[in-house]
Write a protein that binds this DNA or RNA. Structure first.
Lengths: 189, 189
DNA sequence: ATTACTTTTAGTACCAAGTCATAAATGATG
DNA sequence: CATCATTTATGACTTGGTACTAAAAGTAAT
């Protein structure tokens, strides 16, 4: 039996979201209605036509490529920042961060967040990590939110700046690291 | 003056690669030739029409999403592995690894390669990094190939296994790290 | 059952951005 | 000037639509 209008529209929306590369004609066959009905549905649901859908997916991809380079620069989201003093960032552990077998976050993601933050907190065009001592205090699981706190400490004898980063999940410490940073004015290159 | 055919086709190819969302009409205006000429050019160069180009970019995006989750587990490519003894991995530094402004690799990528290798070299279902001392010895640039070498050392008093990882570009050391690893049999969970 | 209203289908004209094929105009070169 | 490559023009057809109008079918209420 053919479904009701509301039900059909619900499924239509899902179907298009799941497989955006589908024509009205194919949809009409699937739902056993005329092309016109599909088009009426799309209008009511404000779903754009095939070509526009494809285009928007493609544009997204185009932006991703640009964005991947930009966003990659900062791991986690900086929520508080006082240049050359302190900074805080949060990162939610998702599927992409954990070991595929167990759901424990891979160390380098925790590290990346901390390292990024150490770079971001410094008021320099480009700061580089020269050395660091780190410690993973406890495992972080998928779904947990890691809050990393960076504090800028003294300069070392060699002109490096020390940034201390501690990461927490619900106020429980999961990571600690001391980052010795080169700053752009004393580049090693 | 209008360019020669060969020159125009060379530029056309470039242009389309760079901005695939461009119509023949727009191209015709840019190169000051008729639409038909552009179409002849596309045929000779085997460049598909706008809609096909958009579609292929969109499909690429669709695959990327799946891929991103799988590849993430191993950073770099393991080329030699003797379990519980030593391992070697290589990683080519690409655009996705460097700071957008300068072309210097971000520390956490170098770290990720080393950390991954430290995990991989241990003959355990799941090894976790507990602690590590690392040092970035010199900057790594885009295009360089980083070879990471891991050696399994002694157990510590606390049952941790120490893995020493040193990374090189053309036999010049760029990174060194000592990783203290938990092994699955003495899980901390 | 008749009326009223919603939902669906049909049909036409039109559009963008092409393909395919044929023919004519233009340019360069021996 | 003849000849060949290159460019332009023209028309018919294609896909996957939009926009609009009109008719048919289904559903509910009086």
């Amino acid at each position: 039996m053919r479904k009701t209008k509301a039900e059909r529209q619900r499924l239509l929306k899902e179907t298009i979201e799941y497989t955006p590369f589908i024509t009205d004609e194919e949809l009409a066959k699937i739902f056993e209605v005329s092309i016109q009905t599909i088009r009426l549905d799309r209008m009511e649901l404000k779903i754009p036509e095939l070509r526009e859908r494809i285009k928007s997916v493609a544009k997204l991809q185009w932006n991703e490529q640009v964005r991947a380079l930009a966003v990659e620069d900062i791991v986690g989201e900086v929520v508080d920042l006082e240049l050359d003093k302190k900074a805080i960032s949060i990162m939610d552990i998702g599927r992409e961060h954990v070991f595929t077998k167990k759901n424990i976050a891979r160390g380098h993601h925790i590290f990346a967040q901390a390292n990024s933050l150490a770079v971001a907190v410094l008021n320099d065009e480009l700061a580089l990590t020269a050395k660091s001592n780190i410690r993973f205090i406890r495992q972080v699981k998928q779904g947990e939110r890691v809050v990393a706190k960076a504090v800028v400490k003294k300069q070392t004898d060699k002109g490096l700046t020390i940034v201390q980063v501690d990461s927490f999940v619900n106020n429980e410490q999961v990571f600690t690291g001391e980052f010795h940073m080169y700053r752009s004015r004393d580049s090693i290159d």
